[in-house]
């Protein structure tokens, strides 16, 4: 969250059983965002590691009015960083975890 002002975390424990994750995103540092956004609200959404892209989710969030177009890159980056971390964690866990 340091550089985008946004925080993304798992909304539910990742049981590594399938490619779908429940993620939660919220604004941790409003000063770092350019456009209008809702401050104290967390947005929970599902993310499929095989079919979804962070850019696509960010675009949907902008279209839904959660964030301004000028912040869509920051939203996509925050989601991408978290998803990358989750993938790395999954790779480290033994098969059938």
């Amino acid at each position: 969250a340091e550089d985008t002002g946004l925080r993304v975390e798992l909304a539910e424990e990742d049981d590594c059983s399938n490619s779908s994750l429940a993620l939660r995103l919220w604004v941790e540092d409003p000063k770092k965002l350019k456009g209008k956004h809702k401050d104290n609200e967390a947005i929970e959404f599902s993310f499929n590691l095989e079919t979804d892209t962070p850019e696509e989710v960010a675009y949907e969030m902008v279209k839904s009015g959660f964030f301004h177009e000028s912040d869509s890159k920051a939203v996509a980056k925050s989601i991408r960083d978290r998803v990358t971390l989750i993938k790395k964690t999954r790779e480290k866990k033994p098969a059938g975890w």
Partner: peptide, 27 residues
Amino acid sequence: SSLTQVVHSAGRRFIVSPVPESRLRES
């Protein structure tokens, strides 16, 4: 709960709820 709002966009569901006070950084 009344505080949770569900928004659908292009088949994706977003559940909006207040951020717990404990998670908000003192800005």
